Computed example of a mutant assay.
Amino acid sequence: MIDPEWQPEIAALFRAEAENLFGFAWAALTQGDTETARDLVQQTFQAAVQAWAELRIRSPEGQRRWLYRVLKNKAIDEWRKRRRIHLVDEVAVEDPHGEESLDVGRQVLSAAALQECWNVIAKMPPDRARVAFLHWAEDWSTREIADLLGISSSTVRGHLWKARTELLLRVGPQVPFIEDPEQEDWGRGTAS
């Protein structure tokens, strides 16, 4: 239950910030998905209401930073739910008669390797895990990730390099989604 005394304060914050939050969610976080952007803003303000006793004593700039941080985290949670990489790839092989068929054995190995990759990524430091997820599951570019997370492109590349190295060490060459390290997007950036 919201303290009736706080309702005008929360309403004022909503009027001051909701439009800009929606614009950011729409353009940067959902890439034009209006309904998801609206949902993210609503979820962010629901979190603000729940945390209002602490949030209300912050400066307007502190409140704004809190809202954007929560909005980004809500978006990442949403992306995790909608992950584009499927656990079973359809791996076609050609039989001796020239017909293609699905190789169930390769599908199972691919699914197991992919699941192990996500297990390894889930145990990485949070920033590295976010970068890895956005890059490999959501197909975001280095620049898009850097802009979203407020870090440099070289830091994103560093996180990807470390994540790739860890995946190859822990999962091996069966990692189904890792690019060639010679691509220009790779490098030993400054991530920690």
Rank of each mutant, 00 (worst) to 15 (best):
Q107Y: 05
K74C: 00
D95W: 11
Q31N: 03
I76P: 01
H86G: 06
Q115L: 11
K123V: 14
A122P: 02
E35Q: 11
R65H: 09
E116R: 15
A113M: 11
A28E: 13
Q50I: 08
E90V: 03
H97D: 13
L67K: 00
W66R: 02
V70W: 07
R106F: 07
R56W: 13
P96C: 01
R83P: 00
V104I: 11
G105W: 04
Q50V: 07
T44M: 10
K72M: 15
V91C: 04
D95V: 06
S101C: 13
R82L: 06
W26T: 01
T30I: 03
E116C: 13
Q43C: 00
L29R: 07
A37G: 02
T34V: 02
A111H: 02
F22Q: 11
K123D: 14
L87I: 15
A112K: 04
D127L: 12
I85M: 03
S59A: 04
G98N: 12
R65F: 08
F45A: 02
A113F: 07
R80L: 12
I85E: 03
L71P: 09
A51K: 14
R128E: 13
I57P: 04
A51D: 09
L40Q: 12
S110L: 05
A132V: 12
V49E: 09
A47S: 08
Q43F: 13
L71A: 07
Y68P: 08
P125T: 11
W52G: 02
Q46M: 14
K74E: 15
R56Y: 09
A37V: 13
A112R: 07
W52C: 01
A112D: 11
L40G: 06
A53M: 15
G105L: 04
